[in-house]
C-alpha cells in the first residue's frame, strides 16, 4: 500500500511470461508471449478485438489453460495442479468486463466470502476488511444492498473492492469499463488511478487511452496473438514503430 514498495522492483519480476503459447483447437490465440512485470509496475494491454489480450491476462490466473511456455507469479511457477493454481489466484485479483458480482449476496457478503473461505478470516475480521475497502472505493453506504440495486459503475467498484479484500499482490483488469455507460466510466477509472497511485502492480486490458497515458509505465500492443510493440506511453503515442500500431492508434484516437 505504501510508496516504498514501488521502488523495490529489483530482484525478480512479479509476473513473468516466457514463450507462452495457447491454441483453441487449430487456432493459435497466443504465440510465444514474453512479458515481465515488475512489482508496482502498471501495464496497459491494448490491441484490436481478437488480438489475444483478454486471453493473455486470463492465462495469468489460469482461467485459461495454456499449452506452451511458462508463467511465474510472485515466484510461483503456474503449473496445472489445483494447489499451485489456487496459490497464484490468492496473489492476483481480477476485475471482469461484466463485473460478475454474486447476485444472491449483498455487496458486503460479496466482499467477505473469499477472505473467509480461503484466507481463514473470521466474520468480524472479514467484515472489517470489507468495510474498509468499500470505503476506499467510496461505496460504503451501499454495503447492505444487492448488486442489482447498484449502477454499473458502482458494481464495478464493488468488484474492485471484492478483489482487493484478498490483499492481492497484483491486479488484472479485463476491459473494466467496456460494459459501462459513458457517464460511469470516469468513476471506475478514478478508482483504478487511485489504486495505481498506491503502488499496486496492475495489468489492464483497456481501450481508455487517456487512462493509459496517465497511469501506464508501459503500453503493450498486441495483434493476432503476438506482442507487436511495447513502449512507455509518451513514446507509444508519439512515435509508434509498427504500421499496425499506427493503424490501431488512428482508429482509437480518431485521427485518420
Amino acid at each position: 500500500m505504501s510508496q516504498v514498495r514501488t521502488s523495490d522492483n529489483s530482484i525478480e519480476p512479479m509476473i513473468s511470461l516466457s514463450g507462452v503459447g495457447k491454441w483453441y483447437g487449430a487456432f493459435q490465440a497466443l504465440d510465444s508471449i514474453n512479458m515481465s512485470v515488475a512489482k508496482g509496475e502498471k501495464i496497459v494491454l491494448c490491441g484490436p478485438s481478437g488480438s489475444g489480450k483478454s486471453t493473455l491476462i486470463r492465462c495469468i490466473n489460469h482461467l485459461e489453460a495454456y499449452q506452451k511456455g511458462d508463467i511465474h507469479v510472485g515466484g510461483i511457477r503456474l503449473g496445472h495442479g489445483s494447489k499451485v493454481i489456487d496459490a497464484v489466484r490468492r496473489e492476483v485479483g481480477m476485475v471482469f468486463q461484466q463485473f460478475n458480482l454474486f447476485p444472491h449476496l449483498t455487496v458486503l457478503q460479496n466482499c467477505m466470502l473469499a477472505p473467509m473461505r480461503t484466507l481463514g478470516l473470521n466474520k468480524p475480521q472479514a467484515e472489517g476488511r470489507a468495510r474498509t475497502l468499500l470505503e476506499r472505493v467510496k461505496i460504503s453506504e451501499q454495503a447492505e444492498k444487492y448488486p442489482a440495486q447498484l449502477s454499473g459503475g458502482q458494481q464495478q467498484r464493488v468488484a474492485i473492492a471484492r478483489a482487493l479484500c484478498m490483499r492481492p499482490k497484483a491486479m488484472l483488469f479485463d476491459e473494466p469499463t467496456s460494459a459501462l455507460d459513458p457517464e460511469m466510466v470516469k468513476e471506475v477509472l478514478d478508482t483504478m488511478i487511485a489504486l495505481a497511485e498506491e503502488g499496486m502492480t496492475m495489468i489492464c486490458v483497456t481501450h481508455e487511452m487517456g487512462f493509459a497515458r496517465q497511469v501506464a509505465d508501459r503500453i503493450v500492443f498486441m495483434a493476432s496473438g503476438v506482442i507487436v510493440e511495447e513502449a512507455p506511453p509518451a513514446e507509444f503515442f508519439s512515435n509508434p514503430k509498427h504500421e499496425r500500431t499506427r493503424k490501431f492508434l488512428g482508429e482509437v484516437l480518431g485521427r485518420h
Binding site: S82, R89, Q98, F102, L113, A114, T118, A159, R162
Partner: peptide, 26 residues
C-alpha cells in the same frame, strides 16, 4: 452464467465453496 464460476475461481475459491456459496444458490 459462466462469469460467476470464473469470478469465484479468480477469488481462489475451491470447488466445494464455488458450488455451495456461488453456483448452487443461484
Amino acid at each position: 452464467p459462466r462469469g460467476q464460476t470464473e469470478a469465484a475461481k479468480a477469488l481462489s475459491l475451491g470447488y466445494v465453496s464455488r458450488m455451495k456459496d456461488v453456483v448452487l444458490p443461484q
